[in-house]
């Protein structure tokens, strides 16, 4: 119980900070919209092909925005050595990790709530009734992304050239999530058949569970030294 309470407090602290500064969310939101425009210029997406390309474009935009958010994730803790203070306080390390994952997840989900429908409008997609399933895939993929992303964001805190190192380390490891999300969304958009996409859904859930567990277990070592 104390663990959940600590997590909730830390999450509340981060959300409050974000509410006052509005740094990450606004930047991520505008970057995401910008990417959708750039993709459209680069690929000249025709309305009849939009449904085929939608999953790839959407998820790429989200991964790029998410990476942008990850750079900022421990910024507040880095300034004024707040991380040391946080580690000195009697808070479970796993609670710090979980609260950061949840905070990152909140940002990404807020972003998705705006960007997904925007994509439907911008690319004239008509399959509105399939949006919730696509959203489910987006959510599960985002959980995986946030779990591993938070861990690696903490891991690269003291590295030189962190901005380039983080995506370089993270993206190859994210391949199962990227593939599963895009393929799952694609099956749903093309065939509307939820059953057929189930293997990908299982893979996503497996990834989320494995790395959430691993993250909670190893986070202590990542921050303590």
């Amino acid at each position: 119980m104390a663990f959940l309470k600590q997590t909730a407090w830390l999450l509340w602290k981060d959300l409050l900070l974000e509410l006052r500064r509005r740094e990450s969310l606004l930047a991520m939101f505008f970057f995401g919209t910008l990417l959708l425009f750039i993709f459209h210029f680069a690929l000249d997406v025709q309305p009849d092909k939009a449904a085929d390309m939608a999953p790839g474009l959407l998820w790429l935009a989200l991964v790029f925005c998410g990476t942008l958010g990850l750079m900022q994730l421990f910024q507040a803790e880095r300034e004024n050595r707040c991380l040391e203070a946080l580690l000195l306080s009697p808070i479970d390390r796993a609670a710090i990790f979980l609260s950061k994952v949840l905070f990152n997840l909140t940002l990404m989900v807020l972003l998705e709530i705006v960007v997904f429908p925007l994509f439907w409008v911008l690319f004239n997609l008509t399959l509105w009734e399939r949006l919730p399933w696509v959203f489910l895939y987006g959510l599960l993929g985002t959980v995986g992304f946030c779990v591993l992303g938070t861990l690696f964001s903490a891991l690269t805190l003291s590295a030189r050239g962190r901005e380039i190192l983080l995506p370089l380390l993270l993206l190859p490891l994210m391949i199962p999530v990227i593939l599963a999300t895009i393929r799952g969304m694609e099956i749903i958009l093309r065939a509307g058949d939820f059953q057929e996409s189930l293997p990908w859904l299982h893979l996503l859930i497996g990834f989320d569970v494995i790395f959430l567990t691993a993250g909670i277990l190893v986070f202590e070592w990542v921050v303590e030294s």
């Binding site: 591993l148 391949i175 893979l203 070592w221």
Partner: peptide, 18 residues
Amino acid sequence: AVVGIIGFLDIPLIHMSV
């Protein structure tokens, strides 16, 4: 060490998805 462990755990998942 953390990357070594996470990377190794990820290999079966990457294998499956690819």
